[in-house]
Design a binder for these strands. Structure first.
Lengths: 147, 147
DNA sequence: TCTTTAATTATAATTCTTATAATTAAATAT
DNA sequence: ATATTTAATTATAAGAATTATAATTAAAGA
């Protein structure tokens, strides 16, 4: 069993204790999110699952992503482009985004906790979390540099 | 003359040397952006200026924000919520966002250059820039805590 | 198996943003 | 100061992403 599947099992189990019902569509959406290393849009998910669920509505995808967000197992990311991307909340990592082709790569880096605490002091906010993206050109899009 | 107006003058002057023409609408949009400490949406700007320009089209606001972005004097920020926000590019700062009411406060912090260089090594991207948001509840939205 | 109530579906409606074509106006040359 | 060129504005329509609605279906627990 893969790591992704283990986490999926945990999440499915933890949802059992809530009012939130487990449906085949929900399971499939979660499964797709946990298996994929990409950061799919709602439409990506919809398209990926239309083979298995030919009658599934786009609204179902959106509804469930919202539910997952509310429970805190999924995060919504919006970059410059038109549609939001969705990501399982796992261990802390940041994202490196290609400004040409939009590819997103995970980047592990120790959490910037001191930024949060400083922001808390300076602004008077009660800080919960933060998010960082690093932008550049991926190897495929960058001109080949020699040195 | 305020700091904001000084910067506005500079920008207007620098646009003179390009093909980009200065129009009253453009000037008003820039003025509004430089004066406002908030991070308005396109619609905020449109509404704020409809008194002065009753016939201005929303398209004009969007068009000009795109132009300003291309020239590099304005930055587009997209958070989870529906519409993008726009911000004058000034000195480096980050944003603290209230997850309840959406208020955005600037947060000055030394640029995280080492994050960029590490990301460059780890991912092979040619990194240009990064962006960080810190999320929490603003003083108005946070429950009053006593300690 | 029955009952309750949440989830799904299909569809319409909204919202944000961009495209189009005609008109207007800035900048520059005359 | 006027004419010319060409970019900017306007009004409108179109597009895409997301959300709302109402009827139907199906999970979970009794």
């Amino acid at each position: 069993m893969t790591m992704a599947n283990e986490r999926l099992q945990e999440v499915v189990h933890s949802l059992k204790s809530t009012k939130i019902r487990m449906t085949p569509q929900r399971h499939a959406i979660l499964e797709f999110l946990y298996d994929s290393m990409s950061h799919p849009t709602a439409d990506d998910i919809y398209k990926a699952l239309e083979g298995k669920f030919p009658n599934m509505s786009v609204a179902t995808v959106y509804n469930n992503l919202r539910v997952f967000k509310e429970v805190g197992i999924v995060r919504e990311l919006s970059y410059g482009d038109s549609s939001s991307r969705f990501d399982c909340v796992t261990s802390d990592h940041y994202h490196v985004v290609c400004s040409d082709c939009g590819k997103i790569v995970d980047f592990h880096y120790p959490g910037l906790d001191e930024v949060e605490s400083l922001a808390e002091h300076v602004t008077g906010f009660q800080i919960n979390t933060h998010r960082m993206e690093i932008y550049g050109k991926c190897p495929d899009c960058a001109p080949i540099s020699r040195h």
